[in-house]
């Protein structure tokens, strides 16, 4: 599929929104269905391979969605190029760091289990 350049952010924003809605439904099911969410149950679910993958994907989707939204806000309100690039740069670094940190945390928990 060919995605136009201008359209890409708009499509990714919607795709990540749909993914986040799915994760939200999963989270709600986790809290509402089954036994109460004790530490044991939460830990077992979150550090299983599918659980860890879902958590990393969740943060990746949150960061991607947040990045597109933040970029839209910056394009609207910040017109000086140096200021624009600085703000975008800072946001990108923070979001990237969050995803990496969550990925490393989940990887560490996975290796502890196995």
């Amino acid at each position: 599929m060919r995605v136009f350049v201008g359209q890409r952010a708009w499509l990714l924003q919607r795709a990540s929104a749909l993914a986040l809605l799915l994760f939200l439904a999963l989270g709600a099911a986790l809290l509402l269905v089954g036994p109460p969410l004790t530490y044991e149950r939460w830990h077992a679910l979150a550090t299983s391979l599918p659980g860890a993958v879902i958590i990393v994907l969740l943060f990746a989707a949150l960061s991607l969605h947040g990045w597109i939204g933040a970029r839209d806000i910056v394009l609207d309100y910040i017109h000086s190029m140096p200021a624009r690039l600085s703000v975008l740069g800072i946001i990108a670094v923070i979001l990237f760091a969050i995803v990496i940190r969550v990925a490393l945390t989940m990887a560490a928990h996975l290796s502890l289990v196995t």
Binding site: F4, V5, G6, Q7, A9, W10, L75, D76
Partner: peptide, 9 residues
């Protein structure tokens, strides 16, 4: 029209 500014603002 496929442009971050022209349409997608």
């Amino acid at each position: 029209l496929d442009d971050v500014y022209r349409l997608y603002r």
